[in-house]
């Protein structure tokens, strides 16, 4: 199994099983805890605090006004649409792909699996460039007539690319965990493959699926490099929430940039909280 998100899953699921806690607090233990907290504090929390402080200093009213501007609303709405498309398409693909990669046996399965991994490993800038090359004027798939440069289809393709593996890996991980017994039982009870999928397999992976879809949405909302390269952040046309932030900070319209950054951070933290909650439910199951 292979994804960023997946690893987060391992940890949290297993954390349900707690080893015997140690009670004695020695100086060394306290020191190590302090070091870890200091590290996470400097690396993660200080930047976050800076954003929060800026938000407070700017004032919620000012931020709300910036976010209510038509171009800001358009950018955020566009990001939501892209996220929704990614959730639907890569959700369906993720379930199907997980079944194919975990349950099927065929020549080329490992290669397919490795290609799925690759979508995580490469830089989003390269993703954008690759789509420009494939669908651009002299590209291989130019005859398909999909408008990529500075156009919505390009943004969709980029978003699909960067969110490809999340649902697949989360669902695949659960499929491997639960094994084939349930599906075999369904077969001996006379269920067709279709019945078995809807009534046994899908309910069994539902928490993994929910986690995968949430991660897909978070990743889609946050995508920047690929949509910038392909879309060019044209205000009111190809701007997404992230490219809006970029454009605003280039134009030194800081309040708009920070406002949108705060909105995105809040949205993604809500999604993260949902994931944490889902993982604990999954652990209880």
């Amino acid at each position: 199994m292979t994804s960023v998100a997946l690893h987060a899953a391992d940890g949290v699921v297993l954390a349900g099983r707690s080893p015997a806690p140690r009670s004695s607090w020695t100086l060394a233990r306290a020191a190590l805890l302090a070091v870890v907290i200091a590290y996470l504090g400097i690396v993660l929390l200080m930047p976050l605090a800076a954003l929060v402080a800026k938000g407070i200093a700017t004032g919620p009213l000012r931020i709300a006004r910036e976010l209510a501007a038509p171009e800001a609303l358009f950018a955020f709405g566009q990001s939501l649409i892209l996220a929704a498309i990614a959730v639907v398409l890569n959700g369906a693909f993720g379930v199907a792909g997980a079944i194919v990669l975990v349950r099927h046996r065929f020549v080329g399965r490992k290669i397919l699996d490795a290609i799925v991994d690759l979508s995580l490993a490469i830089s989003p800038v390269m993703t954008g460039l690759a789509f420009l090359l494939v669908f651009g004027r002299s590209g291989w798939l130019a005859p398909l007539g999909i408008k990529v440069a500075f156009a919505l289809p390009g943004l969709v393709l980029c978003t699909l690319f960067v969110t490809l593996p999340y649902t697949l890996r989360e669902v695949g991980y659960v499929l491997e965990e639960i094994g084939t017994d349930d599906e075999e039982a369904a077969a001996t009870l006379g269920a067709s493959a279709w019945q078995s999928f809807w009534r046994v397999t899908l309910p069994n992976v539902r928490y993994g699926l929910a986690v995968g879809l949430t991660l897909t949405a978070a990743r889609a909302l946050g995508e920047f490099g690929a949509v910038l390269v392909v879309g060019g952040a044209i205000s009111g046309r190809t701007q997404t929430a992230t490219t809006f932030i970029y454009a605003m900070s280039e134009e030194r319209r800081e309040a708009a940039a920070f406002g949108m950054a705060i909105a995105l951070a809040v949205a993604s933290m809500l999604l993260l909280a949902a994931v944490e909650k889902l993982k604990h439910r999954k652990g209880d199951r």
């Binding site: 017994d181 349930d182 075999e184 039982a185 369904a186 009534r199 046994v200 309910p203 069994n204 539902r206 199951r285």
Partner: peptide
């Protein structure tokens, strides 16, 4: 291991 459907 029974293979009962756990969600039913």
């Amino acid at each position: 291991h029974y293979a009962l459907f756990r969600h039913m």
